[in-house]
Design a protein around this nucleic acid. Sequence first.
DNA 1: GTGAAAGCGCTAACAC
DNA 2: GTGTTAGCGCTTTCAC
Lengths: 337, 337
Amino acid sequence: MRVSIKDIALKCNLSVSTVSRALNGDYGVKSATRTSVMKVAKELGYVPNIAAKELVSQKSKLIGIILNESDGDGEARPAFFELLPHINKTLAIFNYRAIIYTINSNSYIRGEITDIINLRNLSGCIVVSVFRENHPIYEDIKSLNNPIVVLESSILTRICSNINTDEVMGGYMATRYLIDNGHKQIGFVNGPQNFEISNERFEGFQKAIEESQLQISDTAIIWSNYTGSGGKDSIHQLIQNNPAITAVFFANDLMAMGAISSMAESGILVPKDISIIGYDGLFVCKYYNPPLASVVIDNAAIGVRAAELLLELINGGSGKTVRVMPKLFEGKSVRKY
Amino acid sequence: MRVSIKDIALKCNLSVSTVSRALNGDYGVKSATRTSVMKVAKELGYVPNIAAKELVSQKSKLIGIILNESDGDGEARPAFFELLPHINKTLAIFNYRAIIYTINSNSYIRGEITDIINLRNLSGCIVVSVFRENHPIYEDIKSLNNPIVVLESSILTRICSNINTDEVMGGYMATRYLIDNGHKQIGFVNGPQNFEISNERFEGFQKAIEESQLQISDTAIIWSNYTGSGGKDSIHQLIQNNPAITAVFFANDLMAMGAISSMAESGILVPKDISIIGYDGLFVCKYYNPPLASVVIDNAAIGVRAAELLLELINGGSGKTVRVMPKLFEGKSVRKY
DNA sequence: GTGAAAGCGCTAACAC
DNA sequence: GTGTTAGCGCTTTCAC
């Protein structure tokens, strides 16, 4: 049988209520009483029963982390796994813990996220995966009555914060970097059109192109799928239709890597024959061959900030938007003309 | 106020105990009663209060996943993040959920893992990170009274299972693959000596070397640190001391990648000038330039199996050892002589 | 400053 | 087959 406050009360000749107050640092307990309670608790190896606390307080100190199941194969969005430890560590400082939930994006039914929260009385949750635009989960989030932080989205309510990279800026930075290095014939391999991030990165791309008054043919823009093999297919198509191309911006690193390794087999070298820049700043970029230029998303900062935003909401704060600036990693995959 | 079984009882003209029995599928409830209870529960939007259930049952349906904090930087052991979704999905089938705990390997104090388990009454836990040999956490695990599954270790008790790749075989396969391709001057860049996996991979390496009666100089074996920059430093040292070397086995992919990208800058090409094989089978291997030969650890299988082993222990089964065979990914980084 | 008692939502004897 | 009751460990009024 585990030690309970009753055991402490018995040993201290006190009532359970006093012990409870002493243990929880409440006012109205003589300081001598408190020290003796603490001492006995330690001696007895007392561990509070969280289930009992939760039952009476109706709260849980548990945070849900919502993951899109398709991220699970490790290919789709590896960057999100870099977030997890940082979210977790920040939450742990305040004695919150994270439960991971995997949601199948295709079989999602309205209210699923509400059920998840209610079942374990979660204090809040963080949606780390990007779902396609107009995915029903976003409707649920908007009408939710629980604190929630959504990454890479712009949902903002009294009780929902969002944190995201400035994707337009990211797209702009990547394209600008190519232009600044003298490239004029530039291709863009993007993700699917029904993702907010794809469209924003595209907007940044366009901005940089227009600003420089470059002409980009329609065939130089490909809407792919954020996978390595998608990158591979796209680059060949791109080169075939645009033989004069000298640089390509891929909307994520995985597609860029798929393209580079595939081109190498055809004897096309990076950056000698063609320059490549990716997006995400995966930690493997710096060990890629060649080190892959990329728009770096600061996952550590986002993870910490997401957790902080959620804790703010839990403590009564109201929803806000936080925007994180991406950085450029130059790598060695872009040639200067 | 949330709907409780009391509300259902009221509406159905039943007692709470009958409702409880009906809801939990216990025997001794008329089938008509059960259907009406179910119907009303649904109508009212009833969600069971898990805290109450846990309080009375003294169990939690919560599993701890123990991560070494140093894995958190995403560099140390990226492969483990590939495990997570698979563990999680398997647990979810049986309504168990995973809580992620980050442990700082250096500041660990005896009993920490026991406290973690007791505080939330975890049904069990899975230790996914590799700690160095003789780390105090392993002593704690041996004397634990709760179901636990440890990856990449050989701890086996009545209530502790372990699951690991056959690392000796992995080391053997990698080395054998180089030998079979005609390499005779082979180098080995390993991880730190105080990790069980390093020593096992080394054993496999030695076995293949001896079997083939090759001579390997002491300077061709380097104990590094599993990081990309460690791989970079090691390869240059290796080549300098062993100019005739034609192939190197790296005990993980990250070191191999660090080495390849660094060699490229010095004009040393893989596999033309030197052949490289890695270990782990990270999903980026196939998009590396060149696609990196590697010993593939089947993280999906390990994740699923680890969860299954834990559930077995929770349901009264006893500790067992499961060994998973690694596979070889040939890539294009090894040249045939 | 401390104690007695009620109750959070649920399960599990035990009674009928 | 169903109801009554006690109790899981804790917090929180309300007395004193």
